[in-house]
């Protein structure tokens, strides 16, 4: 993977301190780490295990259980296709397939050059404007198969 970041111990220490070294805040701590690196680097989790004095396997269990966490680095751009029921009946699966085709990726994967990640989400709660696709935090309402290249084009510059 070309996207590689070295783990800054101070950042980690600061996050853990902010939560008062509280084991019960594990999820919030992981959320903060994920916010910094956009994934959970293995080194960070190993250090976290020592800082919080919890077995590494317990951290891994939590990190792999919740959908918000990723153990692999994300791409520079993240396209998230909403797979909620309302989006589904309005054709979300076809839109996902089109993204997979255009990016030559499967859902949950990242391109080799680290440019794009393709994700799905259970529901974004804006069903009225479905099918919805979120790219780098921007919501794209009423997407269709034909709009996919246009959406991707905006970020490809």
């Amino acid at each position: 993977m070309s996207v590689h970041q070295t783990i800054n111990l101070d950042t980690l220490q600061e996050i853990v301190e902010r939560h008062g070294y509280n084991k019960n805040k594990l999820i919030a701590i992981l959320q903060d780490i994920q916010a910094v690196y956009h994934y959970l680097p293995a080194e960070a989790l190993k250090t976290l295990s020592k800082l919080l004095k919890i077995p590494l396997i317990d951290i891994i269990s939590v990190a792999t259980f919740y959908r918000a966490f990723s153990l692999t680095p994300k791409g520079r751009h993240v396209a998230t296709v909403c797979m909620g029921t309302a989006c589904h009946v309005r054709g979300a699966p076809k839109i996902l397939e089109e993204f997979e085709r255009q990016l030559n990726l499967r859902r949950g994967e990242t391109t080799e050059d680290g440019e794009w990640s393709l994700e799905t989400v259970a529901c974004l709660g804006c069903c009225a404007i479905g099918p919805v696709v979120v790219v780098d935090g921007d919501y794209h309402a009423h997407t269709s198969i034909r709009k996919v290249p246009t959406i991707l084009g905006k970020y490809r510059k």
């Binding site: 077995p55 396997i57 317990d58 891994i60 269990s61 792999t64 259980f65």
Partner: peptide, 9 residues
């Protein structure tokens, strides 16, 4: 031990 555990869901 705490060497193994459940992962994913």
């Amino acid at each position: 031990g705490k060497a193994i555990g459940f992962q994913n869901r």
